[in-house]
């Protein structure tokens, strides 16, 4: 009997120490304290780009939704095909969930024109309302990449920047970065998919 109790207690202890899948995801990035004592989290600034259907994509496009972000090149021989494959898995998983979207920025603003983005999206058989492939002024794209990546970085001393990392970033309804994964790694993408589910549960408690 004593052994059984010890065994049960050990199981409880292990369960308590493990990751709590129902706990809210942390808000990533540096934070400030407002004069009234409130914590101010870094959020994604305003942006405006054009997508594969020549439609304007800005912050309002993602109002009331959570979204995953990445930076890519259509003609990328190494990292992008792997990130694209994992991005497609995320897309398929949440295809029918209107609370979630994907946003891919092309870094190659010269070659990845709107027409090229359209061909790329069509080749992937993507619903343009769900997954926006955007382009814009080169400095604006690099600038917003700095904003996303400087928040979603593992080492606080490392500079931001996309650095060809294949990283996919999860942004919540309040423009806060909540999670990221290595988009070249299928297992890490699986964990990221679970993070998306957790965030959906947290931010849309009454739905689904």
């Amino acid at each position: 009997m004593y052994k059984q109790v010890c065994f049960f207690a050990l199981i409880l202890l292990i369960a308590a120490c493990g990751p709590n899948v129902d706990a809210p995801l942390p808000i990533l990035g540096e934070r400030d304290v407002a004069p009234n004592g409130d914590t101010i989290y870094r959020s994604i600034p305003n942006f405006a780009f054009v997508d594969q259907d020549s439609q304007l994509v800005n912050n309002a496009t993602f109002d009331g939704k959570i979204y995953a972000v990445d930076f890519f090149f259509i003609h990328c021989p190494t990292i992008c095909p792997k990130v694209k494959a994992n991005g497609l898995r995320i897309y398929q998983k949440f295809l029918n969930d209107d609370r979630f979207m994907l946003l891919s920025h092309s870094i190659d603003t010269k070659n990845d024109t709107v027409a090229a983005l359209k061909r790329h999206a069509d080749k992937l058989n993507i619903d343009a309302k769900k997954w926006r492939f955007v382009t814009g002024a080169r400095d604006s794209i690099f600038g917003i990449a700095d904003d996303y990546f400087s928040i979603a970085k593992e080492n606080p001393d490392a500079p931001g920047g996309f650095d060809h990392s294949g990283r996919i970033i999860l942004v919540d309804k309040n423009r806060h970065v909540r999670a990221f994964c290595n988009g070249t790694d299928a297992e890490d993408t699986d964990r990221f998919i679970r993070d998306i589910e957790r965030l959906l549960k947290e931010q849309f408690p009454a739905n689904k």
Partner: peptide
């Protein structure tokens, strides 16, 4: 060749950031 490309790419966001500051 592809490893060399990946390595070179690591400098891309840095040079763009510096160029933006210079502008």
């Amino acid at each position: 060749t592809e490893d060399l490309h990946d390595d070179a790419m690591k400098g891309m966001s840095v040079i763009n950031r510096v160029a933006r500051n210079f502008k």
